[in-house]
Write a protein that binds this DNA or RNA. Structure first.
Lengths: 105, 105
DNA sequence: TGCTATTTTAGCTAAATAGCTAATAATGTC
DNA sequence: GACATTATTAGCTATTTAGCTAAAATAGCA
């Protein structure tokens, strides 16, 4: 309760990952820099929507953007975020196992 | 785009962590099982609100709950989630450094 | 300058999330 | 059974988030 700001800050970063499209972007950016147009092709959304997602991720400090010519490029600032997804996939597998068990029981 | 469901599922788990109170609960539960009343004391919210947060986390497969007497106990199912917070704190430190640099420059 | 391509911002609406109070369950005790 | 305690669920309102279209930047090129 005392340094609640720390938890709010953490939540901001987590929120910046809490959307299917943004997770897809992180996964793509983990392999290297991508331009906005490439990222758009990965999801079913308009360019403005993609741009806003990227802005949110940038604001949270997850990615950084640069401009080259008339197109924008983004790259992942924190590769360790990929480990999170491995962890999450483990969570999901565990949940699936518990479901299976409870059916048996 | 083809197995979009995987990304939606991941997003559900991430969303279940995307709130200051829920992050506080995860941190507390990382140290061991806690009853609902103990968790409530950690945050500024009513019992129903705490209960809903815990239900969401349970639904996402992050925690599991049991009843003993007339009080409920929860425990963390996936300790690796704590690594996420270390990663996030690193993200925040990096962001702070970049801020400092951009001021100098 | 005028035109095109790419990205971002503005302004709006619809949907999701978070919180409360009140009501209901579930247990334990007298 | 009556009552107290703890937790959950229901029903509601306020805030936040996500998406779109339209408009505005930004950069390249004729």
């Amino acid at each position: 309760m005392e340094d609640y700001a720390v938890y709010e800050a953490r939540a901001e970063v987590v929120k910046a990952l809490a959307h299917p499209s943004r997770i897809i972007f992180v996964e793509a950016l983990a392999e290297g820099e991508r331009c906005v147009c490439e990222l758009q092709e990965l999801v079913d959304a308009t360019m403005p929507t993609v741009s806003r997602h990227l802005a949110q991720m940038k604001n949270a400090g997850i990615v950084t953007g640069r401009r080259e010519g008339n197109q924008g490029y983004y790259r992942l600032l924190v590769p360790c975020i990929m480990e999170l997804f491995h962890c999450i996939d483990a969570v999901r597998r565990d949940a699936a196992e518990r479901m299976a068990e409870s059916v048996e029981t």
